[in-house]
Design a protein around this nucleic acid. Structure first.
Lengths: 158, 158
DNA sequence: TTAAAGTAGATGCAAACGCATGAACATTGG
DNA sequence: CCAATGTTCATGCGTTTGCATCTACTTTAA
């Protein structure tokens, strides 16, 4: 007698995550720190800052919730503003290698410092240290998997 | 000797949540079930379906990650398609009361059934029952608070 | 080796978005 | 009671987004 099935558990927890995401994103968006770069632009700058090697557009697109063309143009605008450098990939003539410029890195640090303070204020005010650690572990586990296959499991196919 | 401070814990857990959100949203968006209503439109239909009383635009806007004007027009389009009903609020002449039409409710159920299957597949494949319950509890706690104040705490001001 | 198929990113264009602001109504203070 | 202020949603307008498609390059296989 489990009360609710796994399906309900899965959907309820996902809905709760979505709600938390929306509520906190609204609060962060309301902060007066997005005058130089928008939240989406910051997302790109932050993702690039996390890696020390240049990223391909497609790699970047895996963590940024935008369509490939939209991201392509967002990066284009950041490049025009001197925050991102676009270079052809020497190992793949189709690709571009994206990296922060020095100005981009400084901008990321400046905005990141201010944003991190907001994140700390909201999250640390809501959860204990242990809860934050557990939330991190759970959400990492949630994202860190192969996509679940849709079709029925085929047994011993060749 | 805590290793990392609360600020780091807060930011790391928030980043992990953001990553999980982006990764799973991408997978869900890739599902072939958004031909009748888009994900954002479904978000509105779903939120309305959760409440049995009509919602005000402002209330709806608290859970939907869109600007007020964008939501106003999204609702307008849904109303034109006969999925949402907009009525003036009898208790407040400025407001509108939003509710699903019967067609809207059916559409929400149809899309919801298909989407829920995807959510179950991804989330239940990644987490145990206990983990799902813990994730739900943590994210509820995270969102279910008053916004943390920014300014310094004023003591005993009148 | 080379034609066919696949992949990465850019571009045209209509739809949707956010910001600033407006119009209508509600609330407050004198 | 009424003027001033606040609140709620709608609208004008420039910017950004997504979809479809294109080009350029790579990979596969014959």
């Amino acid at each position: 007698m489990t009360g609710r099935g796994r399906g309900h558990l899965a959907n309820d927890s996902w809905e709760a995550l979505l709600t938390a995401h929306a509520v906190l994103m609204k609060r962060f968006a309301a902060a007066p720190i997005w005058d130089e770069v928008s939240m989406r632009e910051y997302d790109v700058l932050y993702t690039l800052s996390k890696h020390d090697r240049p990223l391909r557009l497609g790699e970047l697109n895996r963590s940024v919730l935008l369509s490939q063309p939209a991201l392509s143009r967002l990066v284009e605008r950041l490049a025009e503003r001197g925050l991102v450098e676009r270079a052809p990939d020497p190992e793949d003539g189709r690709g571009v290698r994206l990296a922060l410029t020095e100005a981009g890195r400084e901008q990321q640090r400046r905005t990141g410092r201010r944003h991190a303070a907001d994140v700390t204020r909201e999250v640390a005010a809501a959860l204990t240290d242990d809860e934050m650690r557990r939330l991190e572990a759970l959400t990492r586990k949630l994202a860190g998997r192969e996509p679940a296959r849709h079709d029925s499991p085929q047994e011993a196919v060749q």
